[in-house]
Design a protein around this nucleic acid. Structure first.
Lengths: 345, 345
DNA sequence: GTGAAAGCGCTAACAG
DNA sequence: CTGTTAGCGCTTTCAC
């Protein structure tokens, strides 16, 4: 194994505790010894053993990150690498490591999280999703274990630290954009209503329609897991309505890409026949055809803020719950187009 | 903190060492005490402290996973979540945790890896990419630290355990497909030639052309970082050649999506005017327009095999270097189309 | 089969 | 300012 603190101490002619103090950058230590010890450390290639440190400190200097279960196709969403980047950036800066947690099924996920917590492998946890009735969140709360969620918790919103966008407002603004450019029949397509993010974005959509006095039929709201078979059917029905929509608010860029393709197959063109807006602004939304008008939610920022909050919380158990709202902005691209006034004969 | 081994020992009326033996499922222990201890553990909600265990064992029960630096847009490639799933599956099964390692710049990455290794945070490392002159790999070799690479190392191929597809053969087969359906002018578009995967796929492409006696001009090979500005230019030039290609072999699905869109903008249709094949079979390649004919490289398998190899290597330092080739298969979809014989007048 | 005791490598009082 | 000492929670000889 590597060099230990004792060996360094001996080499520098001091006690191990002194070396420890140098490592911790303790104030009350003479510059002379400090220098001497540092020199010895360098010469001997000393690096503190994280395990031993953590044992002595009862900490782990690591953050657990829980992704959604991989049963979920959504895991392939570029959202995740991006949010990981954000987390990683501040984790690295603050000298924390990242412990990843996935699993095939929900039970496996819970089990993995339990193990992490019980065996003291992590100081705190970041939940990368938020859904109703989440057993993992319930477990964390019950254990009073530090965690933050990226997104909005489904309940006890004020007691749980979370980092989110104002998805309701974002939903409203992006829908308003569609309204402003002349659309009156606007439908919403989102994933499962178990996901809070879907709900919020839809709320925004509804409130925009309401304020504008536009119709929002039940038939205008589609919730489909992730395209494919079921989704196709739903979209098909949407456009078989007597009054088919001319604008679509879609809860996620990836979904948009699927929908655009589906529409084109059905002989409808985006944006000529139908305008589409969505959320996230993943890299793909720029290079797809047409490039998507979408809400840039600043994924990286969500990640970095979450890490920051969690670290604060870990360092100070009494840190009050807080809510961080990461601003968004809208990227206007060519999936939307002015709706010409209906040709009245 | 939690319950300790001592408390369990006291409750069960045995010595701590006995409890330890029960945890480790030591053979020489009477069924009676074993049962008694287990009962106590359960009742008290005992869970071993990973840190203490690892310190005593000089191990960490965790695997480090190194992603490419996030400077790389490619990080948003769904390849990563998917390969993580694979790693995760076996890690979980074998009771290892996953330590993630990213960084904004290459230096930051190296630094992060060094810290992981020096501070004994991980037992072994999986490199999720392979490129020439990689300082991280050099470091790992120099330290004689256990690692495996997903992909093919740029050098010392027989000394480094790696998990890869036979990318040369895959490149050849997929190119042959294009040839079989009548294409004769086939170009290759790939990312940086620093990445081994690009090189191998291109070799396959070349060898297919050669065997078929088809031309492979220098102008038919494009290496572009990741579309956008530079890429557009290159593609544009490709189709300004006196003999523009009718088939395209593209090194990555995501790139294909960009290229398809670019072509459509230029007024060319896939597959009517030009056929496209690529690699990876990420989820998107099914839902894009048109769905892509692509090599399914079994990303999940790459991940799980890598984890398996690494764990073997970690458990047995003497484990010889090995190479695991994960099979691939081709998904035929509608980005390719028979090329009608040139209309000879 | 089980217990006592000595560590794993580091930190943190408590003295001085 | 620095050394001594006693752990952190678990494993592992070595006895019995």
């Amino acid at each position: 194994m590597g060099v230990t603190i004792k060996e360094v101490a001996k080499a520098a002619g001091v006690a191990p505790s002194t070396v420890s103090r140098v490592i911790a950058d303790h104030p009350r230590i003479s510059p002379a010894t400090k220098k001497r010890v540092k020199k010895a450390m360098k010469e001997m290639g000393y690096h503190p053993n994280a395990n031993a440190r953590n044992l002595a400190n009862r900490s782990t200097q690591s953050l657990g990150v829980v992704m959604p279960s991989s049963a979920d196709k959504a895991l392939q969403n570029p959202f995740f690498p991006e949010v990981l980047r954000g987390i990683s950036a501040v984790a690295h800066e603050m000298d924390y490591s990242i412990l990843l947690c996935t699993g095939e099924t929900d039970e496996q996920m819970l089990e993995a999280v339990e193990r992490m917590v019980y065996s003291n492998r992590t100081d705190g946890i970041i939940l990368l999703y938020s859904q109703v009735n989440d057993p993992i969140m319930a477990f964390l709360i019950e254990q009073n274990f530090p965690f933050v969620v990226v997104g909005k918790p489904s309940e006890r919103v004020d007691e749980i630290t979370h980092v989110d966008n104002d998805n309701v407002r974002a939903g409203k603004e992006i829908t308003n954009h569609l309204i402003e450019i002349g659309h009156e029949c606007i439908a919403f397509i989102g994933g499962s209503t178990d996901r809070i993010v879907t709900i919020d974005r839809m709320k925004g959509y509804e409130s925009a329609l309401e304020e504008a006095g536009l119709p929002y039929l039940d038939e205008y709201r589609i919730h489909t897991e992730f395209l494919k078979s079921g989704g196709r059917q739903a979209v098909h029905e949407l456009f078989s309505l007597p009054q088919p929509p001319t604008g679509l608010v879609i809860a996620d860029d990836l979904m948009s890409i699927g929908v655009v393709n589906m529409l084109e197959e059905l002989g409808m063109h985006v944006p000529e026949d139908i305008s589409i807006v969505s959320f996230n602004n993943v890299y793909l939304s720029e290079i797809t055809r047409p490039p998507l008008t979408t809400v840039d939610i600043h994924i990286h920022g969500l990640g970095s803020q979450a890490a920051k909050c969690l670290i604060e919380k870990v360092k100070n158990k009494e840190e009050p719950a807080k809510r961080i709202i990461v601003p968004f902005d809208i990227k206007y691209r060519s999936s939307t187009q002015e709706k010409e006034a209906p040709t009245e004969v």
